[in-house]
Amino acid sequence: MNLFRLMGDVSHVLAVFILLAKIWRTRSAAGISGRSQILFTIVYLARYMDLFFSFISLYNTVMKLLFISASCATVYLIYFKFRATYDGNHDTFRIEFVLVPSLLLAFIFHYSMSFFELAWSFSIFLEAVAILPQLFMVTKTGEAENITSHYLFALGSYRALYILNWIYRYYTEGHFDPIAVCAGIVQTILYCDFFYLYVTKVLQGRKLQVLP
């Protein structure tokens, strides 16, 4: 474990809780893409199946349980508890357009042809593009509430920090995971446009408006 990865995980947990708190406190899923949350739930379920038989550390196990439960809780809040506030008209990104390519990529790039390794690769590729429905929704609605922007900033920062972690691990322990690194770079690039808007708009106290 290194500081970059720890900060990345903290940023990730922060993002998950910002979103849950926002939906729970405002009792509304307005502006939130339920489809992205479904994709994240699939990512965590596919990646953390090894939870039940490969113990790495208490931290690792606790975090996996947390991400799985938090993403399921978020999907439940959006599609069940606060279903009336879910903005389905603007959450229209076809998730099969990311599910199918991720699955194909998993069959091409994987570390072993075992079910769990295919699931792991699939989850890595899927996570890289899981935020697309949410970013798509922000461009369709033309804006995002501040709290949603903070959520996206924390979520984008998590994988950006992981890139620093991979650089660090490469030079200190020769660890290199090409699948995770490539997908992580793509994932972070997808946020760049948003990062720019966030820094130039939200941090100046203005609302995040995506220019129509």
Partner: peptide, 10 residues
């Protein structure tokens, strides 16, 4: 690809 099927990262 490199066969590091030991995933210690989240």
């Amino acid at each position: 690809l490199l066969r590091n099927t030991f995933h210690d990262e989240l």
